[in-house]
Measured scan of single mutants.
Amino acid sequence: QIFVKTLTGKTITLEVEPSDTIENVKAKIQDKEGIPPDQQRLIFAGKQLEDGRTLSDYNIQKESTLHLVL
């Protein structure tokens, strides 16, 4: 699982696999929060994550925290 922290300070927990794409993660966030993926920007280690890449591409491991910017 990974954590996604929103600007409001809320933390969302997501069940993911390293092979999941960023697009996939955004879809999971939409399921939980109702935020359309095209409004979501995910930041990890100061980098904006691209939809077509996977979590493992960015070396995002379990218990990692991503930041969600709208």
Rank of each mutant, 00 (worst) to 15 (best):
G9D: 05
T13V: 14
Q39R: 12
Q39Y: 09
L49Q: 00
D57F: 15
Y58E: 03
Q61N: 11
I22Y: 01
I35T: 07
I22C: 03
D57Y: 15
I43Q: 07
L66K: 01
D57M: 06
T8A: 13
T6H: 06
I29F: 03
D31G: 09
L68R: 00
H67M: 13
A45D: 12
P18Q: 08
K32N: 05
K47S: 09
S56M: 13
I12Y: 06
I43G: 03
E50C: 14
K26R: 05
L70V: 13
T8D: 14
D31C: 14
S56I: 08
E33Y: 09
F3E: 03
P18V: 10
T6A: 05
G46P: 01
L7C: 15
G9M: 04
G46I: 02
K10V: 09
I60P: 01
D51I: 05
I60Y: 02
K32W: 06
T13N: 06
T13G: 05
R41S: 10
K47W: 07
N24H: 14
T13W: 07
L14W: 01
I12S: 02
G52T: 10
K32P: 02
E15F: 13
L55P: 01
L49M: 06
P18L: 14
L14H: 00
T13C: 11
S19V: 06
I60S: 01
I22K: 00
A45K: 14
K28D: 02
P36A: 10
E15N: 12
R53W: 10
F3H: 09
N24V: 14
N59M: 08
I35D: 03
K10W: 10
R41L: 12
I2T: 02
S56L: 12
F3K: 06
K26V: 02
I29K: 00
F3T: 06
T8P: 05
Q39F: 09
F3I: 06
L66F: 04
T11W: 08
E23G: 13
D31M: 14
D31F: 12
P36I: 05
V69A: 08
D20I: 05
S56E: 12
F44M: 04
E33T: 14
I43M: 15
E15G: 07
I43N: 06
I2D: 00
Q48A: 12
E15K: 08
F3N: 05
S19F: 12
K10G: 07
K62Q: 13
K47G: 06
N24I: 15
V69S: 08
L68T: 02
D57L: 03
F3S: 05
K5H: 10
L68M: 08
I12V: 06
S64N: 08
V16H: 05
P37G: 07
Q30M: 13
I12D: 00
Q30P: 02
G52N: 11
E50F: 07
G34Y: 03
L7F: 13
I43P: 00
K47H: 13
V69Y: 13
P18T: 09
R53G: 07
I43E: 08
T21E: 03
K47E: 12
Q48E: 15
Q30R: 13
E50M: 10
N24G: 09
E33I: 14
I43K: 06
R53M: 12
L55N: 00
T6N: 06
Q39G: 06
H67T: 13
A27V: 12
D57N: 05
E63H: 13
E15T: 12
S19C: 12
N24Y: 13
D38P: 07
A27E: 10
K5S: 08
I35S: 04
I29S: 01
R41N: 10
Q61K: 13
Y58G: 01
Q40E: 02
P18I: 10
R53N: 09
F44P: 00
D31S: 12
E33K: 05
I43Y: 15
